[in-house]
Nucleic acid binder design. Structure first.
Length: 115
RNA sequence: ACCUCUCCCCGGAUGAUCGCGGUUUGCUUUUUAAGUUUGCUGAGGAAAGUCCGGACACGGUAGGGUCGCGUGCCUUUUGAAAAAGAGGGACUGUGUUCUUAAAGGGAUGCAGGACGGAAAGUGCAGCAGAAAAUAAACCGUCUUACGAAAGUGAGAUAAGGGUGAAAAGGUGGGGUAAGAGCCCACCGCUCCAGAGGUAACAAAGGAGGCUAGGUAAACCCCGCGCCGUGCAAGACAUAACAGGAGUAGGGCGACCCGCCCGACUAGAAACUCCGGGUAUUAGUCGCAUCUCGCUUGCGAGAAUCCUUCGGGAUAGUCAAAUGAUCAUCGAACCUUCAGUCAGUGAAGGGGAACAGAAUCCGGCUUAUAGGGGAGAGCUUCUU
């Protein structure tokens, strides 16, 4: 699926809602939080790579781009519309795309995101 | 040719599929929006640190002082400035050579750098050493008292030893109880002077027994320069309200002097101060090479880069676009084999450093695998 800029979350209130009302699971490299919302006209996604992940902006960018690729590759199989927040853990800096993909899909199965 | 140093340049490549930002050409729809589609375009030499300098914006800029910040040999070139380059001077370290009995001095080469002031004041200095800044007596030397002697006490002494980065001028002679610039010669040093030089600087000459150790990237003093806050600057639009207090205060950092604006008329208005929330974790602009013109998104011109010489290009995000996967190629490096004095060649493996624009520009600093080029020095080889 495509991920245009419109799909990204940018409101603090949205993040708070997902955190309080949604479900979340932690994996080896990422933490995934989600909340189904019928009112949404399109998916709302966020990829969080804080400075705790790495002090180097270059590495944070790489991790975030890899996480985006996971959704681009598998997003069509998910149940929409919903909020999905992906938070990178410190170990994600060392991970390859394959490892991130496997970790993410495992969490998606636990959260019943996949159809 | 090897090695070292300095400077400059590059700093993974190509293709396919999928995807993102900007811009653009059409088309579609439920048309204030979205989908789809055609082109073009999209990270760096440091984008980093935020250490300097500017542009730009705001703060109603009289002026002066104190605090504060920056800067610091001279001449000159480039530059808006910071800064950088070139040449020179003094100093420190070091090599060669000449001279001298020695100490020392002259000539010449190389290297270094925040290179105003240590004779205004304050502070600081581990260990070693007896003693480290109004010098100092551990050993030693000399005098003297006591003693048979060994030695002990008192005093003199900075020549010798030892410690140290540094021991308060050096060498030789005189002198002395032993010594000491105590005296003398030479050298050094300090002060005066000032030929010469654009200047930093400084030759000759004169005076002084020598006083004044180091550290200013410690405080500090001196010269010169500096208004503050930074694009979260700031401007505009829409929506939507709700206040409180006051009437003299307000004004380019703080404090002081001083100056300017303003009220002094009851209310209103106006102004000032305090304090909120929503749209708004800003909607548009600022903001994307520059200038000019008008129809305000086009035209013209200019600059830089690329070029098939026709032209083409000029990042603009903002919970952060510039990416992912695969294939081919690939530098360093590793292994094996072959060969040579040596450079090397073949096969296999391996798979690219530091690092991500955030208003823009010029510097500085820091990180950086590897490759290329130029210059200098040293050594060696060949002719």
């Amino acid at each position: 699926m495509k991920l245009p800029r419109r799909y990204s979350m940018n409101q603090r209130a949205e993040f708070l809602r997902v955190r309080q009302e949604g479900q979340s699971r932690a994996g080896r490299f990422v933490i995934v939080a989600t909340l189904a919302e019928e009112k949404l006209s399109h998916p709302k996604l966020a990829f969080v790579t804080s400075k705790r992940v790495s002090k180097k902006a270059c590495e944070r960018n790489r991790v975030r781009r890899l996480l985006r690729e996971v959704i681009i590759k598998h997003g069509d199989d998910f149940q929409w519309p919903r909020y999905i927040v992906t938070i990178a853990r410190t170990s994600a800096v060392e991970a390859t795309f394959e490892e991130l993909e496997k970790d993410w899909l495992r969490l998606a199965r636990k959260l019943d995101i996949k159809t």
